[in-house]
Simulated scan of single mutants.
Amino acid sequence: MATPTDTGPLATLRRGIPDRYLTPDDIAEIFDVPKETVYQWRKKRIGPPGFRIGKHLRYDPADVHAYVTGRKSADQHAA
C-alpha cells in the first residue's frame, strides 16, 4: 500500500514527470515553503514559471524540473 510520501508531488518528481500539471499547493509542498512564497515568486518572476488555465495557476512539471536544474547549476558555478 502506498503512503502519502510515495504518491505526493515530491515522490512523483523523483520518478519523473507527473501526468498532471502542478498546483501552487504542490509547488509549496515540493519546495517546503508557504504557499504565499510561491505567489511572491511568481509576482517577482523568480520562481518556476507558471501559467493560467482560466483563473487557476498551474505549473508544468518539466518547467519545475528545469528551474531546479538551473538553480543547481548556478549555485555550482558560483561556488
Rank of each mutant, 00 (worst) to 15 (best):
V68E: 02
R42P: 03
R52D: 04
D63R: 04
E36V: 11
T69G: 10
M1P: 13
K35Y: 05
Q76C: 05
P34L: 12
R71S: 07
M1Q: 14
R71A: 08
A78H: 11
R42C: 08
K55L: 10
T37A: 12
P48M: 02
A79H: 13
V68S: 04
P9Y: 00
G47D: 01
T7M: 10
T12N: 11
V38Q: 00
V38E: 01
L13R: 06
G47W: 00
F31L: 05
K44H: 12
A28E: 01
Y39E: 02
K43F: 15
I46S: 11
T12Y: 05
L22E: 00
D60K: 04
Y67H: 15
V33A: 09
I53C: 11
R45A: 13
A2T: 10
P9N: 05
Q40N: 14
Q40L: 11
H65D: 11
A66D: 15
D25H: 08
Q76H: 11
G47Y: 02
V64K: 03
G50N: 01
I46N: 07
P18F: 02
R14G: 14
P48W: 00
D26K: 00
L10P: 00
D63M: 09
R58G: 02
K43Y: 15
D6W: 09
M1E: 13
G70R: 14
I53E: 15
Y59G: 00
D26S: 04
D19W: 04
K35D: 03
T5W: 13
R15D: 15
Q40I: 11
R15P: 09
A2Q: 13
R52N: 08
D25F: 08
R42Y: 07
P49E: 10
D63E: 14
T3K: 13
Q40P: 00
D26W: 00
G8R: 05
Y59A: 02
P49M: 06
D26M: 02
V68W: 00
S73F: 06
A74I: 01
L13T: 05
S73H: 10
P18V: 01
D6C: 09
D63C: 07
A79P: 05
R42N: 13
D6L: 13
V38M: 02
K35F: 06
G50Y: 01
E36G: 08
P4R: 08
Y21N: 07
I27V: 14
V33E: 07
D26Q: 05
Y21E: 06
W41N: 06
L10F: 07
I46Q: 09
A2Y: 13
I27D: 03
I30V: 15
G47S: 08
P34Y: 10
Y39F: 12
T7V: 15
A62I: 10
T37Y: 04
P61V: 05
Y39W: 08
G8K: 04
F31I: 05
I53Y: 08
R14T: 12
P24N: 06
H56Y: 08
G16A: 09
D32A: 12
T3D: 11
F51A: 03
G8I: 03
P61K: 03
